[in-house]
């Protein structure tokens, strides 16, 4: 194999290899030969083991996916937001996912912001806080994939639906864009996409998951603050988090929507 040869060459003498690259002797072959095609699924190892054999209409009942956001790990870099925007080419000003920054002072005043949804990261500290800061953290937001989704309940035409495997999705071919789901979602994760003129929201990257890949935001998170996995797999991290003592909660539990999105280390100030 060509690649093996190149790799061997690199490991033999890196400096010589770089010289050759710079000299152009290898560069050409590197650019022209793309082994197996980087976008072909076969070239990318499965991130969710066994998913590619799961080819039914729905994900096998043996799996139950959960999404966990670990607030105690998030660094607010916004990688997830960037990946999400690029994966779905989300129009400016609309957010399938975003990262909020919470600052709580010692008077219990809560300051929240999310400039451009955290897409540009957080470069500057908040300068409008008079009192000493008691607590500060980042909270990534995305679709809660409710067990009892308000959006599905209110959609007048059956364009927003819940699959048997628990995903809440939008049928862009039937959506009339009445906006009722946008009003009904307690978490404000929905918007009317100005390009498609239909309702849009985070899908937990259903198209990636079904191809054995992690959601784009989980895949890019450098600190594993976003976790996605199978609750029926006792070795999975999500299983361990939800089945061992942890401070775990969901957003707005009194809404009765029963989100499948859980948060580790969620503070009561977070809505």
């Amino acid at each position: 194999m060509m690649m093996d040869g190149i790799e061997k060459e690199i490991s033999q003498d890196r400096r010589a290899f770089i010289k050759k690259v710079l000299g152009g002797t290898i560069a050409g072959s590197l650019l022209l030969v793309i082994p197996a095609g980087a976008m072909e699924l076969s070239a990318i190892p499965e991130q969710i083991p066994g998913m590619r054999d799961d080819t039914g209409t729905f994900i096998s009942k043996k799996r139950k996916f959960a999404f966990i956001v670990d607030i105690t790990r998030c660094i607010g870099c916004g990688s997830c937001c960037v990946a999400d925007k690029n994966e779905y080419q989300v129009p400016d000003g609309m957010y399938r996912t975003w990262v909020e920054r919470y600052v709580i002072d010692d008077q219990d005043n809560v300051f929240v912001d999310s400039p451009n949804g955290g897409l540009d990261g957080y470069q500057e500290p908040r300068k409008d806080i008079e009192h000493p800061v008691r607590d500060t953290f980042f909270v990534p937001k995305l679709c809660n994939m409710c067990e009892h989704p308000s959006c599905v309940q209110v959609c007048p035409v059956g364009a927003t639906y819940q699959t048997d495997d628990g995903f809440v999705l939008v049928d862009a071919k039937r959506c009339v864009a009445c906006g009722y789901c946008v009003q009904a979602c307690p978490y404000s994760v929905r918007f009317i996409n100005p390009k498609t003129k239909t309702a849009d929201k985070c899908t937990w990257c259903y198209h990636r998951v079904r191809k054995g890949l992690l959601p784009a935001c989980v895949n890019v998170c450098p600190v594993q603050a976003r976790k996605f996995g199978d609750l029926n797999d006792k070795d999975s991290e999500v299983y361990k988090i939800l089945h061992q003592p942890h401070v775990v909660s969901v957003l707005k539990p009194d809404m009765g929507n029963k989100p499948a999105l859980h948060y580790v280390g969620l503070r009561r100030e977070v809505v």
């Binding site: 929240v112 912001d113 400039p115 451009n116 470069q123 500057e124 300068k127 404000s188 918007f191």
Partner: peptide, 27 residues
Amino acid sequence: MSPEHGAAVATALTNYVFPNDIHVHWS
């Protein structure tokens, strides 16, 4: 939107609006 501009918007608001709630869909 530059982050500087974003920060200005965030602090200009007395409080916090979810990013998707800035749009009034039912007009």
